[in-house]
């Protein structure tokens, strides 16, 4: 699949933003009320990340001026559900933030609702891809699992950075949580990659043409001498050569380096800054991970363009 930058940016940043909303919603339960300067910074960041992601996702539309229509088909379409849920989440989070920032009171039920809605929003984002049978690598339960896990991991790293920056003392339980979520997310991703690499393809040139019973099928002549929308959008193969190297880069930046930085932050002074760097490196790694998510995905229509 063609890796459009707007969609990569959207899924990574909105994932981190909703991850932070989840953490903020649950924070009072763990003794960090998101109030005062800490609360302001955290909420502004969560809104920037989630809203900029949503706005960037409209950049790849042919008709962004009609984007409101995308909120109407929530009964069948995960893309529509994602839009509705994102608005609901940011709305409820707004009420929660008003209580926390203006009245110095984090209302726990609103926080819980924010956290739950944020997670369901990320689930809906992942299901835009997970529901597509045409891309076998995406069509597996671990797709939503990995999106949610990365969202929580990013949110927890950012949350621990903000807590360290504003409270001047680090929170060991939060650091352990961030480490555990990072580890869990990458464990899911590794299994996801492995499944995608080893599962035999259900659709083949033989099933695509129905001619498999006559012999080995390969395309001799393409429909036109030039390229076309389908080939540009869905028969993208450039990444495959470097896939392994890019996976290593994604894992190093997205998982290993942030984990080492978190460990470092737990012993040396200046934890806030170190954790902020950990978050930045993690996000950079996720951009590579998400680029591969698209670039490595093989669409069923590629079977029709298979020159064997």
């Amino acid at each position: 699949m063609h890796p459009a930058y707007s969609v990569i940016f959207f899924t990574v940043t909105s994932g981190a933003g909703f991850g932070l909303f989840t953490m903020l919603g649950l924070a009072p339960l763990f003794g960090f009320a998101p109030t005062g300067a800490f609360g302001w910074t955290a909420f502004v960041l969560a809104y920037l990340l989630s809203v900029s992601g949503l706005v960037s996702s409209t950049f790849h539309l042919g008709h962004p001026e009609r984007a409101w229509r995308a909120l109407t088909q929530w009964r069948t379409s995960w893309l529509s559900r994602e839009g509705v849920l994102a608005i609901a989440t940011t709305g409820v989070a707004g009420l929660y933030a008003i209580g926390a920032l203006f009245f110095d009171r984090a209302i726990i039920p609103l926080g819980l609702l924010t956290a739950i809605l944020a997670l369901i929003t990320v689930y809906a984002t992942s299901m835009i891809y997970g529901v597509l049978k045409t891309v076998q690598r995406w069509h597996q339960p671990l797709t939503p699992a990995s999106y949610i896990a990365f969202s929580l991991a990013g949110g927890s790293v950012l949350m621990s950075a903000l807590v360290a920056l504003f409270s001047a003392e680090r929170s060991p339980p939060l650091l352990v949580l961030a480490l555990a979520l990072l580890g869990g997310a990458w464990a899911i991703k590794l299994v996801w990659w492995r499944r995608g690499d080893t599962e035999p393809l259900k659709s083949t040139p033989a099933s695509a043409t129905g001619l498999g019973h006559l012999g080995r099928v390969r395309m001799l002549e393409s429909p036109h001498t030039g390229t076309n929308y389908l080939m540009k959008e869905m028969v993208f193969t450039i990444a495959r050569r470097h896939a392994l190297k890019l996976r290593a880069i994604a894992g190093l930046a997205g998982g290993l380096m942030p984990a080492l930085l978190i460990l470092m932050a737990s012993v040396v002074p200046g934890a806030g800054l170190i954790l902020l760097i950990a978050f930045a490196v993690h996000i950079a790694g996720l951009f590579v991970e998400r680029w591969l998510f698209f670039a490595e995905a093989r669409h069923a229509v590629a079977n029709y363009y298979d020159r064997g």
Partner: peptide, 20 residues
């Protein structure tokens, strides 16, 4: 007139029947 050109339907079609 309602299409926003998101392209998701083309991704959902295994046959490559939809083109922007």
């Amino acid at each position: 007139d309602w299409c926003i050109g998101c392209g998701l339907c083309a991704w959902a079609c295994p046959y490559g029947a939809r083109e922007m």
